[in-house]
Design a protein around this nucleic acid. Structure first.
Lengths: 224, 224
DNA sequence: GTCTATACGCTGATAGAC
DNA sequence: GTCTATCAGCGTATAGAC
C-alpha cells in the first residue's frame, strides 16, 4: 500500500505527491528537531526540501498541521520497539537488552525525531496531549502487564514500579539524542564516536539488568 | 555582597535595581522555561514581572542577553549539588543517595529552570556551549576522580564509566521536570503527587545503588 | 530612571499567473 | 498542480516625553 520514490510522469493524478510529501516530512523533522516549533521557519523547511515555500502550505495546510503530521509519524514507530521487545514471549533479560539497544539505535540514527518530541513535551505537549493520555497511556499499561508476567516467572524483581522504570528508561536513552551537545562538550568531542555509543549502551544495560534482574539469573559479570 | 529586596527611596543610585532585576529574572525563567527562547515573548515576560516592556530592555539589553543571564544563574546553583554530595569525604552510597535526592528536589521545585536548560541544549547550546566545554567539563572530570576514590575504597564497582553514569543520572533526574507533562498523561494525573515523587526517587535509588554498589555493601534489601 | 508610542524586520499564509 | 509576488500580523528594539 505504500510504494514510494521513483518520480514517474504525472500521467496518473497524485503520484508525485508521495515523493514530495516524504521530502517535506523529512526536512520538517530535521528543522523542527533542531530549532523547535517556534524557532523553525517554513522557509527553511522549504529550502531543505528543495521546494518553494508555497508548496508546503499546499500539501500540509498550516505550520501546526505539518508539525502534527511529523509528530504522529514519529510516535507510530516509537511504540513498535516496546511492543517487539517488552513482550511476555521472551525473557526479561533478553527483552530489556533488546529494547535498550533499539532505543539507543533510534537515538543515534534519528536524533532529530527524538529532539522534536522533546521540544513538544517541554512546551506542555500542546499538539499531542490527547495522544499521550490515550494511546501511550494504554500502551504503558500493557507494558506493566508484561512486567507482571516476568515478575511471576521470577525473571524480574517484584518491587520495581513499572511506570517509573519506563520513565527512567526513556530518560536515559533519549538523553543521548536530546542532550548530545552537552555530552560532546563534556567529552571534548565534536561528535559522539562509535565507542561512546558502545559504552553508553553498556552502562545502561548494567544499570537496568543488575538492579531489576534477580541475582540468580546473573553470575558471569560480577567482576567487582 | 548580595543584599536583596526592600525597596528604599532612590537616594542612592541603583538600589531599586536589585528588586526589579530579580523580578525580571524570575519571570524570565518561568516564561523561557515554558515556551523556550523563540516561543517566549518579551511582552509576556514584562507582564509577568509587572513592568513595562521597555524596562526589561533597559536592564538587560537584548532578549538574548536576558536569556544568557537566566541560564548562567541556573548553572551556578546546578553544580553545587554535585560538589556537595559526590565528594570523597563521604561514602559512595550516601553520596549517590544525597545527590539523587537533591537533583529530584530541584526538578520538583524549579521545573522551569530545568526546562530552560533543556531547551537550550536541544538547540545545540548556542549561548552556553563555551561554558559547557570548560567549566562543566572540568567539573565532571573532578567527579570522575571522586569515583576513582570510591572504587579504590571498594565502595563502588570498578567497571562503571564515570561519564556515562553521570549522563544517565542527569537523564533520569531531569526527565522528571522536562517530561512531566508526558508522565501526567501516562499516569492519568493533572499533576504529579508527592507519592509519585517518592516512588520516582525510590526507583532511581534502586537502579543506581543496586548496580553501582558492590554486593558486600548491601544485604538488607534483596527481597526477591 | 521610568514608561508610552512607534519603527522595522521577519514569517506565516494566500492570491493569482502559469 | 506548481510557483512568484505580496499581504498582514507579530515581536524586538528604540526614540523621546516625563
Amino acid at each position: 500500500m505504500k510504494q514510494a520514490d521513483a518520480p514517474p510522469p504525472e500521467a496518473r493524478t497524485g503520484i508525485p505527491r508521495r515523493a514530495n510529501t516524504r521530502q517535506i516530512l523529512a526536512a520538517a523533522e530535521h528543522v523542527f528537531g533542531r530549532h523547535g516549533f517556534h524557532g523553525a521557519s517554513m522557509m527553511e523547511i522549504a529550502r531543505e526540501a528543495g521546494l518553494p515555500k508555497a508548496n508546503i502550505h499546499y500539501y500540509f495546510g498550516t505550520k501546526e498541521d505539518l508539525h502534527r503530521a511529523v509528530l504522529e509519524q514519529i510516535l507510530a514507530e516509537w511504540l513498535q520497539d516496546a511492543d517487539t521487545w517488552l513482550h511476555p514471549d521472551i525473557s526479561a533479560r533478553t527483552g530489556f537488552e533488546g529494547y535498550i539497544r533499539a532505543k539507543m539505535t533510534f537515538s543515534r540514527k534519528r536524533p532529530d525525531a527524538s529532539r522534536l518530541f522533546a521540544h513538544e513535551v517541554l512546551q506542555g505537549a500542546p499538539n499531542i496531549y490527547p495522544y499521550l493520555s490515550t494511546t501511550l497511556r494504554d500502551h504503558v499499561a500493557g507494558l506493566a502487564r508484561t512486567f507482571d508476567v516476568w515478575k511471576a516467572r521470577g525473571e524480574m524483581r517484584v518491587d520495581v514500579d513499572a511506570y517509573h522504570l519506563m520513565f527512567s528508561l526513556w530518560g536515559m536513552t533519549q538523553t543521548y539524542a536530546d542532550m548530545s551537545t552537552q555530552m560532546c562538550a563534556v567529552l571534548s568531542r565534536t561528535t559522539l564516536t562509535a565507542q561512546d555509543h558502545d559504552k553508553s549502551i553498556e552502562t545502561i544495560l548494567m544499570l537496568i539488568l543488575d538492579s531489576c534482574t534477580p541475582v540468580a539469573a546473573r553470575q558471569t559479570e560480577t567482576r567487582s
